[in-house]
Write a protein that binds this DNA or RNA. Structure first.
Lengths: 131, 131
DNA sequence: TTTTGTGCAAACGCTTTGCATTAAT
DNA sequence: ATTAATGCAAAGCGTTTGCACAAAA
């Protein structure tokens, strides 16, 4: 694996921000620093970084895929108005034990998405940008 | 709202099975009973039934959207090998209270997806069909 | 008879891929 | 020099939509 300019920037961007960006948000952001960058490269690198376990793919119900530079497990809260996503703690061990005992599954991962309206949107102060 | 043949069959199918089908799984299933049915109609009815709160849209990380005839809140466990989805209980109230106190959001809904491998797939007895 | 619902096919939005070219090693 | 990585454009795939027609009410 070669450490290319694109790769480095994408990883830095994910590590730097806590904003859980989508592929094209990353693309638009980095385009200024690396004008030759293409969206396909962003997608390819995100897939690779995810396979390496360096970055986490978030399956939110926004229709788009989000990425997270923080691999430690946590849940997410998404605002249905503006699309903002913030980190939340996981439920306690008790629930997990219950789930495992009920299911007969080998657990690989957990995706927890809380959906709501953030304070700013609730008070009508922020422009709509997501769905 | 008119109770058409298509509508009735789609709703029945969702109520009957605990399989959390996708739009096109429903389409393929009902095609035998109602050959004139089109995929677009399935999509339109699912959206309508969801708006009515009669059916629930599941945001799983399979790339496709699943629907659930059980509107009561519960989590889901998905097998990454065969795509099977089974119901699981929600975490306890304690975690919810913590999340709400930390977030400043008005909570609207919760999507919890556990990802794992079911017993049959783990023992190599079932054919791959999902992702 | 009036609308709502439908089938069809085209459009859409995000993601993936084939291929020729570029650039890390 | 070798081969992974890239840009571009096209293809893919699930979902949505415009429109003329069909069928509930």
């Amino acid at each position: 694996m070669r450490m290319t300019e694109a790769r480095k920037l994408i990883l830095e961007e994910l590590r730097r921000s806590s904003k859980h960006p989508t592929a094209d948000e990353i693309f638009l952001k980095l385009r200024t620093e690396l004008p030759s960058l293409s969206l396909a490269t962003v997608y390819r690198n995100l897939e690779l970084l995810e396979r390496l376990g360096v970055v986490k793919r978030l399956e939110l119900s926004s229709g788009r895929r989000h990425y997270d530079g923080n691999v430690l497990d946590h849940a997410h809260m998404r605002c249905i108005e503006c699309g903002e996503v913030v980190d939340m703690p996981l439920p306690g061990r008790g629930w997990l034990r219950k789930v495992l005992s009920l299911s007969d599954y080998d657990l690989i991962g957990i995706n927890i998405e809380l959906v709501g309206i953030c304070k700013r949107c609730a008070s009508g102060k922020k422009a709509r940008k997501g769905r």
